[in-house]
């Protein structure tokens, strides 16, 4: 079973949109809003598109809007790729 971790998300984000503005990427930022980490709506669209291509899932607009923190994003992506 494929799982998607916080580390995986950090790697895609860094590649797609640059390192977080807070510097650290660990469990401390799990519940910080993406905008506080310096990632805007375009960054999240780019990251969603990349993850969608990697796991062959389509991430709808509403889901992108709802992904407000890294925790929500990781949970959403895991739910999608582990078979829901």
């Amino acid at each position: 079973m494929t799982t998607f971790t916080m580390e995986d998300l950090g790697a895609v984000l860094k590649d797609a949109a640059g390192a977080p503005e807070t510097g650290a990427w660990n469990d401390d930022v799990l519940d910080l809003p993406f905008y506080e980490l310096g990632y805007d709506s375009l960054a999240l669209l780019e990251v969603s598109a990349r993850i969608g291509r990697q796991f062959k899932i389509a991430i709808p607009d509403d889901a992108v809007v709802e992904m407000k923190t890294p925790r929500i994003a990781v949970e959403y992506i895991n739910a999608r790729i582990t078979g829901a």
Binding site: D15, A16, A17, G18, E46
Partner: peptide, 8 residues
């Protein structure tokens, strides 16, 4: 250039 702006 700020890191956030390089990829975009």
């Amino acid at each position: 250039v700020p890191a956030r702006l390089v990829p975009q």
